[in-house]
Design a protein around this nucleic acid. Structure first.
Length: 283
DNA sequence: ATGGTCGGTGGCCGA
């Protein structure tokens, strides 16, 4: 099974490009962020025609998260218990959607950007990550064997080589110690980042600003991740950051990230049965 | 070429 995470920066602006990529890349489940539309504006039919079921949560032109799956979608959950709100009055934004697809609990997450260190949005970002950690840790406490993926745009570069030049980030968000500590707390709760071992840096990124020719100058950031529970991490056989998809006119400013999973022991057994390998002898 | 962005929106904001 192949799971992807991708901040698409408007699903309507590049719907055809997204659909073509899903099909070409043989993606079974996609966690999508920044759809930038309400539910009634989502181009659902384009994806259902390709065999994907769609679960989307969008409240306005901001944020918006979705899970697309061609291996089933059940138990769709909008947001998570304890998810902090924003605004006045504070209300949860469209930044988290969970769904069970092919036996895996997949979360599409769009962590707040933080804007500037002295901006209230930065404190909101840290609160949001702490709540995510608490929720995810609780899931594992309830079911240590859970197959769960926290996929999304975390808006954090956890290591110095996850940005092109640390000097450029002096006094800026995405690289501060509190943000990195908050990211690490999720990892320490039992959710390993499974892409990096297959796509080591330096110089390997998932995001490049549209401005100032960042992409051709290779000035990027690694901020999109797949964090897997222990049972899911054990199935990861490969991963890829598809830098090619960042190229050309009409690209998102984020590249899609793919994780390849081995079949579970049960799936392998079922497949063997179907093939007759362990079928009982016919009498 | 010594600069250089998008998307959604509605008369700027967010990234």
């Amino acid at each position: 099974m192949r799971i992807a995470t991708w901040n698409v920066n408007s699903v309507r602006a590049r719907a055809e490009r997204i659909a073509a990529w899903l099909e070409r890349s043989d993606i079974d489940v996609a966690a999508v962020q920044e759809t930038k539309c309400r539910d009634d504006q989502f181009p659902t039919e384009l994806f259902t025609e390709l065999g994907y079921e769609v679960a989307h949560h969008g409240l306005s032109q901001w944020n918006g998260v979705a899970v697309l799956s061609r291996v089933g979608i059940t138990d769709v959950q909008i947001g998570f218990p304890g998810q902090p709100g924003w605004g006045d009055p504070a209300a949860p934004e469209a930044r988290a959607l969970g769904a069970t697809c092919g036996g895996v609990r997949v979360w599409s997450l769009y962590i707040p950007n933080g804007r500037e260190i002295d901006d209230p949005h930065y404190a909101y970002k840290l609160r949001w990550l702490e709540a995510l950690r608490d929720y995810a840790a609780g899931c594992l406490a309830t079911d240590p064997a859970a197959q769960m993926a926290l996929c999304g745009d975390f808006n954090i570069a956890p290591q110095d080589d996850d940005v092109w030049d640390m000097a450029e980030f002096e006094g800026r968000t995405h690289v501060t110690k509190p943000e990195r500590d908050a990211f690490r707390a999720v990892v320490d709760a039992g959710f390993a980042e499974v892409v990096r071992p297959f796509a080591p840096g330096p110089g390997v990124y998932t995001y490049w600003d549209y401005k100032q020719l960042s992409f051709p100058k290779r000035k990027g950031m690694r901020i999109d991740f797949v964090l897997a529970s222990p049972a899911l991490a054990a199935r990861v056989s490969g991963a890829l950051i598809d830098r090619e998809e960042r190229k050309g006119k009409g690209a998102s400013d984020h590249a899609p990230v793919i994780v390849e999973l081995d079949r579970t022991a049960q799936e392998t057994s079922d497949a063997a049965d179907a093939a007759g390998a362990t079928a009982p002898p016919q009498v």
